[in-house]
Every structure is written in C-alpha cells, then in structure tokens.
C-alpha cells in the first residue's frame, strides 16, 4: 500500500520552490530548443554548400557534441571552461568570479548538444530528398538557389520535423541534468524538497507528473505544427 502524504504542498516555501523550478526548467528548455533548432538549420544549410573545410568543421562539431554526455559538457563548462579566463569582478565583494553563471553554462551546453543532433536531423531531411524532385526542378529551369529555397528546403523541413520533435522532447528532459551544476530548475528543487521533508516518493511522483505534462504539451504543439505545415505526400495530413 502506498501511503502518500501531500500535506507538505501547503508549505509556502515548497510552493515557491516548485514554481521557480518549473519557470527555470521552461526557460532553459525554451532557450536551448530555439538555439538548437537554429544551429541545426544553419549547420545543415552550410553542409549543402559543399565546402570541404566547412564540412569537416561541422562534422567535428557534431561528433564532439553528439558523442559526449550532456552532463559531462555541463560539468566541463561550469568547472573547467569558466575558470580559464572569462572572469568578472563582483562590485560588492571585489572578488573576481566566473563570467558564465550555472544557467548560462547549462543553456550553452544544451544548445550545442541539441544543435549537433538537429544538424543531423535536418541533413537527413535534405539528403533523403527524392532525386526525381530535384531533377524536375532542374527541368523546369530553377536556379540552384531558387531550387533549394522553393523546393528542397520546404520538403526537407517537413521530412525532418518528426526527428526534430524527438530531439526537442529529449532536450527538454535533459534540462533536469542541469541540477548537478546547481541550476535551480525543477529537478534541483525536487531534491531540495525531499531532502527536507523526506517524502521522496511523493515528490518524485509529483515531478514525474509535471514533466509528463510539460513534455506532452511540447509534443502536442509539435504535432500541431506538423499538421499545419503538411502538404500532400509530406507531413502528417489532417485527417
């Protein structure tokens, strides 16, 4: 028998911790999702230019950020990078402190991690373009740029959307790892609360419900976007 006790939710301190936690989780997820999508688009776009050194550079970026755990990236940014230079002086204490806050470190590493995955998603969208469509564009006399913007990009975006949804919902959940470098997001405050009231089970269940709700909203919106953008043959058509 689960003997759940949620009376601690009445404590104003816990309430404000939860609210601040959810807000910070949303902020972190929003910033890193937007940045990751932009990085993904720009990266995939750059890959279409077929410039050898640029391709190698993007390849290196993708390999480094896709193949390392985001937790490691955050710890690295927080404890290592920010101490190599990048210092500001705190006017109150006169001490020099690292320029990048925990939040900034988490946002940057999540953006780069998500961005690396998004480049691959958009690239696969461009590469799986049916050859026949490109040839049809050429036959109709489209220039290379016009063909890309008017034919390839719109189709590639639609092919990539489901993969992007996966990446963004994963990225949303990965924000919880920022608690390790003390970003006061939902998981961080969950830890603060159950370490204070020892209602581990209750806090975990609540946090689980909050994450399920938030990520469900995100995937719902992405599905709506997919449907709205759909055109015959590409994307989930409205039924």
């Amino acid at each position: 028998m689960l003997d759940l006790d949620y009376s601690w939710l009445a404590d104003p301190a816990y309430q404000s911790w939860l609210v601040v936690g959810v807000i910070n989780t949303l902020k972190l997820a929003a910033i890193s999702s937007i940045a990751a999508t932009l990085i993904g688009m720009l990266g995939a776009l750059a890959l279409t230019l077929r410039i050898a050194w640029l391709d190698a550079l993007i390849e290196l970026f993708v390999e480094v950020f896709r193949n390392t755990p985001p937790l490691l990236q955050m710890l690295f940014a927080y404890f290592t990078l920010s101490t190599l230079g990048l210092q500001v002086t705190d006017p109150d204490t006169g001490l020099s402190m690292p320029l990048l806050s925990a939040f900034a470190c988490a946002a940057i590493s999540l953006s780069l991690f998500g961005g690396a995955l998004a480049i691959e998603a958009f690239r696969s969208g461009i590469e799986t373009m049916p050859r026949a469509i490109i040839e049809a564009g050429q036959a109709l006399g489209y220039s290379r740029w016009a063909r890309f913007w008017r034919i390839e990009a719109p189709i590639a975006t639609r092919i990539s959307l489901p993969a992007l949804t996966n990446i963004l919902s994963n990225l949303f959940k990965t924000t919880s790892q920022a608690s390790v470098i003390t970003v006061p997001e939902l998981m961080y405050y969950a830890g603060q609360i159950y370490n204070d009231n020892f209602r581990t089970m209750e806090v975990m269940i609540l946090v689980l419900v909050i994450y399920v709700t938030l990520v469900s909203i995100l995937t719902y919106l992405m599905a709506r976007l997919e449907r709205w953008m759909a055109f015959p043959g590409y994307g989930k058509a409205a039924s």
Binding site: F79, S82, T93, M97, P98, A102
Partner: peptide
C-alpha cells in the same frame, strides 16, 4: 569547495 574557490559564492 571548488565553486567557493572559483568565487561562485561569497
């Protein structure tokens, strides 16, 4: 301790 040394906290 590391964060204290880095002056992340007073």
């Amino acid at each position: 301790y590391r964060a204290l040394k880095d002056n992340r906290c007073v």
